[in-house]
Amino acid sequence: MIEMIWQAEFQQAAFRCVVEAFSRPGQISVLPECKHNAAIAVLATLVDSESSLADPHQQLDNSHWLRLQIKPTAPELAAFILCQGTLPVDFEPCQGTLASPELGATLVLMVAAMNGGDTTYQLTGPGIETAVHIAPQGLDISWFKQRSGWNGAFPLGVDMLLATEEGILALPRTTQIKEIN
């Protein structure tokens, strides 16, 4: 029996959660139940041999790569990058070009929890009615610091997705993040 995350029905339902997450930044979407970390389930939903994936922090094992039917790409070139949030940023992701900003990478960051962290951030921008607050746990401060540089010149930039065991939370490049304590 093929594991659930590689099946079409799961991927359709997971995709709708990803759409919901990116449409409403800062809001947690809970993926349908599966025996995998939400980050892996999202990659199974979006990545295939027509895309590219980097795994700089070695979060994937051989069976994942076999199912994805691709080989790892360098993080500087990849469309999707799977990252361990506790580690500091150690690469420069693709930010797209002025004519093709969609080539900016999607970073999937594995974090411990969406709330209860030491620092609270206020999010504003498209998809957010007024403002939302998040306080992720297990996210090195360098990620948001680097992000403001990467996303400094809209439409260029990178889009982020924080992932815990079951939930995801999106930070598209249009979301303004402000530290409030």
Partner: peptide, 17 residues
């Protein structure tokens, strides 16, 4: 499923930009 995934990736970027 490959066609769907390609559209899905494009939809995500469309929402982000």
């Amino acid at each position: 499923e490959y066609a769907k995934r390609e559209i899905r990736r494009s939809v995500i970027k469309a929402i982000c930009i």
